[in-house]
Design a protein around this nucleic acid. Sequence first.
DNA 1: CTGAAAGCGCTTACAG
DNA 2: CTGAAAGCGCTTACAG
Lengths: 345, 345
Amino acid sequence: MPPAKRRRVTISDVAALAGVSKGAVSRSFNGAERLPASTVKRIHDAADQLGWRPNAAARAIKGAPAHTIGFVLQRDPDLLGLDPFFPLFLAGLERVLSQNAYSITIRFVSDATEEARCYKDWVAEGRVDAFIVSDLRDDDPRFAMLDDLGSAAVVIGEPPADVHRPSVFHTSDECIEEVLEGWITRGHTRIAHVMGDPNLQHARRRRDVWARVLERHGLSTDALAVGGFTEPGSAEATRELLTAAERPTAIFYANDIMAAAGMRVMSELGLQTGSDVAVFGFDGIPLGPYLSPPLATIACDYIELGSIAGQVLLEELAGRPADPERRTLPARFVERASYGADAAS
Amino acid sequence: MPPAKRRRVTISDVAALAGVSKGAVSRSFNGAERLPASTVKRIHDAADQLGWRPNAAARAIKGAPAHTIGFVLQRDPDLLGLDPFFPLFLAGLERVLSQNAYSITIRFVSDATEEARCYKDWVAEGRVDAFIVSDLRDDDPRFAMLDDLGSAAVVIGEPPADVHRPSVFHTSDECIEEVLEGWITRGHTRIAHVMGDPNLQHARRRRDVWARVLERHGLSTDALAVGGFTEPGSAEATRELLTAAERPTAIFYANDIMAAAGMRVMSELGLQTGSDVAVFGFDGIPLGPYLSPPLATIACDYIELGSIAGQVLLEELAGRPADPERRTLPARFVERASYGADAAS
DNA sequence: CTGAAAGCGCTTACAG
DNA sequence: CTGAAAGCGCTTACAG
């Protein structure tokens, strides 16, 4: 058992020890007013000696910001196990925010109702100053909700054109296009796509880019399967694609995890990834280079994404309008053996 | 830009609308006192109508709990990308806590100094009621710190014998022993171990179990390499082991990610995982069954671990001493092709 | 059963 | 430059 809680040290104790008023102590901790350096030092010494810091709750009650950012995720917990986005983004975000004395509070919810309640409660209770809005959906209800609540937020992903909220996202369309074109140049004519969760905006977007490139070259877009961002889903989708009458010779997977699961199916079917079936994924998981064969991928920098999101949020909370409103990061292609032989070879 | 913030709705507004005193509103939201059901309903209707909820800061200022749990992680952000523990544990923990109106606040720190400051600050500022202590280290300074702070906590991992704090952890010693014995039964005599970060308690523990089993059977424990829980580290360690004079025929990796990286090296060296070199890992990452060959592993249930940690914490905060003080979860072996042919075959 | 009042630990105009 | 005082939004003994 921990020792019993001692009496709380308050600003009065510090003021008494330093021989000044509570006001002076408060001011010395809030920097705005000018105090003689010697007084500030005396106060801070007293505070350190007593282990005192301004109580966060007492501070926030004056209407001051809670210095906390809310991050509500509507995700199947089981899908979190290998998703590189969440932990890396969080680490990048947290790093920037904590340097500015902001904390992050996280909630996992299971549906949109719970999600809405969480947003409302946190605002009403004054727990958070702003939200992280990620995993954009079709007709996403969160934008209207944020407007209703009058709450600040940064959007991770590309918001609809009529939404004017600061946002940060990777641009990958061109990169995906080039990589698919590369396959076409090398003679691939049946190029499949295993897509992610159709409810998510970025999953649909990757599919659209894929379809656009194929159509531009007069190729069929029949070979589309839904993997839903899960390993079993992708394995099934891959099996379906590879046992169909017209087997694709190349597959673009909406993420690396699905690509890895797909590659396993290929080896089960006696197909060589990279030669019989070319493959690339998306995300750039650290394990990619260690798969057999190493997995080509469109790599994103999720730590950087989180860190930019943090900066944008701090600017917004400081009252400076985000400029530009939409900030982008380039995804980049990492060519590895699974992409297939180079045109030169 | 979000619309300007409206005037805050306070308990007085709700009291006025419901035609009662502030005290009545407060009591109706804190359940303790008995109010006529009709009054409670009238108050709650008024609150809903105004979108009011008790302000968290104002509540906490009375010395009431912050209803927040602190989770401080000292980790290299880059290592978070594929670590299954963190996101799954967090999801399990959060689920239990949020059902009891607790939030989690997370901080990533880069060294022990920053860590210590974070613990002290959060307690002094009254931001958290308790901590999650994970990734136990040698002579871990956090136990003394928590005692000093008089703070509640739940330990994830097995604490030193003299530490009396509620804890939750997987027991895997027996499981690892049996699986290693299985290899010995099948005739393996050179069994290597690629260990994790030597500063972490569980990494050393896995190594010790491995060494104990080998010694018990009079086998050499020379084939030990340090992978540090990273893919490149493990690749290098594996290469070293497999190109040594006496090549091991089996390798136990301290986690699945390192095993996957090691398997890649095997294929580069022209060795067949499962026949030339048998392998198993630790964690049970979802991708395991999709590696080539599928990866045998000692699987842990990190969602469940988080959820039990949450329950233990809630009990502790409710003043009920944890019973038992140390709660365990069995890790279990998942046999897959990388483990090698079955004795029967 | 319920209201009026004091007080939680801070911050911040307002005097001096 | 600095102190005394009011007040933030709530909770909680204390009266009635």
